[in-house]
Write a protein that binds this DNA or RNA. Structure first.
Length: 135
DNA sequence: GCCAACGTTGGC
DNA sequence: GCCAACGTTGGC
């Protein structure tokens, strides 16, 4: 069991869209590091969903529902997609500012490598973010 | 295989 | 809307 954090621009595809569709096809990743992380996902791994740009907060929690497969948005065999289903919404979104202010989260790739869109996170970091998101 | 140019992401 | 960071592309 592994924990992940994925980013999405809410203008393009939001947590709310994902809930409405009851599923998200996580495609369009065009970065090797992020792609490798997608490939490393296992069924039922837990994924934190982060809204970048306008929101800048972790909004919900999903679950990997399909292992990496050919990205349907391209014929290029280098790129893959996974399916993620929504599990729970955080009662209180955890903002980037909160994450930055938390010393235990200081070395999250989210902060250190701000352009990476799919990243692994430790169980401790995961639990802490969920705790911070409780109502 | 190196490196400069370019494009994109994402925070501010 | 700007700009810094950084990944990717393409010329050599």
């Amino acid at each position: 069991m592994q924990y992940w954090l994925v980013k999405t621009e809410p203008e393009a595809f939001s947590w709310q869209d994902m809930v409405a569709q009851k599923r998200a096809v996580w495609d369009g990743v065009r970065n090797y590091t992020a792609r490798n992380n997608l490939k490393a996902m296992a069924l039922n791994d837990i994924v934190l969903i982060y809204h970048s740009v306008t929101d800048k907060c972790v909004v919900g929690l999903g679950r990997v529902d399909a292992l990496a497969y050919q990205d349907p948005t391209t014929d290029d065999e280098r790129w893959v997609a996974v399916d993620i289903v929504p599990v729970t919404e955080l009662p209180k979104p955890v903002t980037l500012a909160q994450i930055k202010a938390e010393p235990a989260l200081a070395d999250l790739p989210l902060i250190k490598q701000s352009r990476l869109s799919v990243m692994p996170i430790s169980e401790d970091a995961f639990k802490l973010i969920v705790e911070m998101g409780k109502g």
